[in-house]
């Protein structure tokens, strides 16, 4: 066989073999790999390359080597799933770099990490002030994760004592002007509903690049034609404002009337509306 045809066949075959093997080995991101997995992938890549350009002459020998590296990697991953001991052996353990706001110098030395690098990685986590850090840990992948002191943590609705409504994830229902049926049915809606909503907005389906429905059933659309201004969903805010207006109206009726019984009815209803407005606030405004 001529040299070039052989290389062509080897390369073509290995291309698909490598594709398949890497798929079988899992879908970890290169940046999230532990150092050993990284080495593993590189060895597999190099063996494939060497077979492909015939530096390893014997195809069978090359494939054996490739097979061993792939098989051991899969086997180790499987064992690591089953046993924590193996997992720690392969991946190592996370190293605590800072505790109670103090840098653990000996741990830093253990992972060969300088103070400069620690500061750099803290900054990349948006922590510029060391005094804000309660706890920092280096994961087995080399990433740094930071736990801030409680007074420096971002405020959550829980901290503020505010009630918020649960928000299911939004579903994309239109892409490139095509209606996607599955996300629509996930929300319990159908094409007719979507058509009515689009008519209300006054846009045609072909003009919609992306359409998303949020958890409460409001449709947000982005159009191809950016000159058209689409009214953004404000129904809930409007509803809330209307509730408040009605409550104020009732109070003013109560003030206007001289009839004692009517005054009582107005005030009572104003009170009820006030309660219900308060109850609906987390759902309508947040």
């Amino acid at each position: 066989m001529r040299e070039w045809t052989e290389i062509l066949l080897r390369s073509g075959g290995l291309f698909f073999l490598a594709l398949f093997l890497i798929r079988v080995m899992g879908r970890r991101q290169p940046s999230r790999m532990s150092p050993f997995t990284f080495v593993n992938y590189i060895v597999i890549a190099m063996i494939s390359a060497l077979i492909s350009i015939k530096i390893i002459r014997d195809l069978a020998l090359g494939l054996i080597a490739l097979g061993v590296w792939v098989f051991l990697s899969i086997a180790l991953d499987y064992l690591a799933l089953k046993s924590k001991w193996v997992h720690d052996l392969i991946n190592g353990k996370a190293t605590i770099l800072m505790k109670d706001g103090k840098v653990m110098e000996e741990n830093l030395l253990q992972v060969r990490y300088t103070g400069e690098e620690l500061l750099r990685d803290l900054r990349s986590k948006n922590v510029f002030n060391m005094a804000d850090v309660e706890f920092a840990v280096m994961e087995t992948t080399g990433d740094i994760n930071v736990f801030l002191k409680s007074e420096k943590k971002p405020v959550t609705p829980h901290d503020l004592g505010k009630q918020v409504s649960p928000q299911p994830e939004p579903q994309t229902v239109i892409l490139d002007g095509n209606i996607l049926n599955e996300p629509l049915s996930n929300l319990g809606l159908n094409r007719d509903w979507l058509k009515v909503q689009l008519d209300n907005l006054g846009v045609s389906q072909d003009n919609v690049f992306i359409g998303q429905v949020d958890g409460s059933g409001e449709l947000y659309v982005d159009l191809y034609d950016d000159a058209i201004q689409v009214p953004q969903p404000k129904v809930k805010e409007l509803l809330y404002a209307n509730l408040e207006k009605c409550q104020v109206d009732l109070t003013s009726f109560a003030l206007d009337t001289k009839n004692g019984e009517a005054k009582y009815i107005y005030l009572n209803n104003a009170q009820k509306l006030k309660q219900v407005t308060k109850k609906l606030e987390p759902y309508l405004l947040r």
């Binding site: 409504s165 649960p166 319990g188 958890g215 409460s216 059933g217 759902y283």
Partner: peptide, 10 residues
């Protein structure tokens, strides 16, 4: 909203 919403509490 009551008919449309997925969450029971809401």
């Amino acid at each position: 909203y009551a008919a449309q919403c997925q969450d029971e509490e809401a």
